[in-house]
């Protein structure tokens, strides 16, 4: 009875898929050190991941900085604490909001794009064509994309954080007549090593998760065009969920090592 319930429920499928993702990740780690290294394709993927997301990340960061400052300022003013606005915004953006929001945006843009691209290649037999031409498609397509997201998401987050702080400065400058130098002095005076390091390190894991899930879903896509759509969609959903789990783990670990 228990077995029947177990088999009928989505739990079995969920556990099976978790195992498959784990094996997929293990294959990535076993192939990433092996020759030949696909430098050219890696650079191409870094360019695609980084350059094509730059505008979206910039816009997100700017609006994030503007909104956060606009919404928080009245409350801070009530307490006569508007002088702490740059420090408060800086810490919240760099520690938490920036990495998570920008990683979520990237999961939507990059994760779905990878899932759809590889899914389409799978159903049109382009991956098989690559394999029969004596090329390892996992190494060429998957390893390069996962490495590209792992390397580029941290850079995008840094860029997004910088734009968000600039957005916050614009509001502070308009409402509180704070100079550029004063604003950023206050931001960086408040930030410590324990704020910057965990926030930066976790973005590498975010990037890895986005690349891994996008590639896994696309590479294992089935059932024609429906499968491609599903691969793109589930890549975003699963990667977003995984980002929250990773963020929670990162906060726990950071709390142990940096005494937040």
């Amino acid at each position: 009875m228990a077995t029947t319930y177990f088999q009928r429920s989505g739990l079995r499928r969920y556990l099976k898929e978790t195992g498959e993702v784990w094996l997929f990740a293990r294959r990535f780690f076993s192939e990433v050190y092996r020759r030949p290294f696909e430098w050219r394709e890696l650079l191409h993927q870094c360019y695609i991941v980084g350059n094509q997301s730059l505008f979206l990340v910039g816009m997100t960061g700017l609006i994030m900085g503007l909104v956060l400052t606009l919404q928080t300022r009245p409350t801070m003013e009530d307490f006569g604490a508007e002088a702490y606005m740059p420090a408060m915004v800086g810490v919240s953006i760099i520690r938490e909001i920036g990495p998570v929001v920008i990683a979520l945006i990237c999961a939507g843009k990059i994760g779905s794009s990878i899932g759809a691209e590889l899914g389409s290649m799978k159903v049109t037999e382009q991956i098989a064509a690559m394999e029969v031409s004596g090329t390892n498609p996992f190494k060429y397509l998957v390893v390069t994309r996962i490495l590209a997201t792992t390397l580029m998401i941290p850079l995008l987050v840094i860029f997004g954080d910088a734009v968000a702080l600039f957005g916050s400065f614009l509001v502070e400058n308009m409402k509180g007549d704070v100079s550029f130098q004063l604003f950023f002095n206050k931001v960086f005076r408040q930030l410590s090593f324990g704020d910057l390091m965990p926030a930066t390190i976790k973005t590498f894991f975010f990037g890895f998760a986005i690349g891994l899930i996008g590639c896994y879903k696309g590479y294992n896509s089935q059932k024609g065009t429906v499968g491609v759509g599903r691969a793109a969609n589930t890549a975003v959903v699963v990667a977003s969920m995984l980002l929250f789990v990773l963020d929670f783990i990162a906060v726990l670990v950071a709390d142990i090592f940096f005494d937040l």
Binding site: S120, M121, Q126, A128, E131, V132, S133, G134, N136
Partner: peptide, 21 residues
Amino acid sequence: EMDRLRTEVGFLFQGSALYDS
């Protein structure tokens, strides 16, 4: 060995399977 052998065996796919990028 398989990759080396595959260079001696061409495969024309039903749907052409050209790399569309």
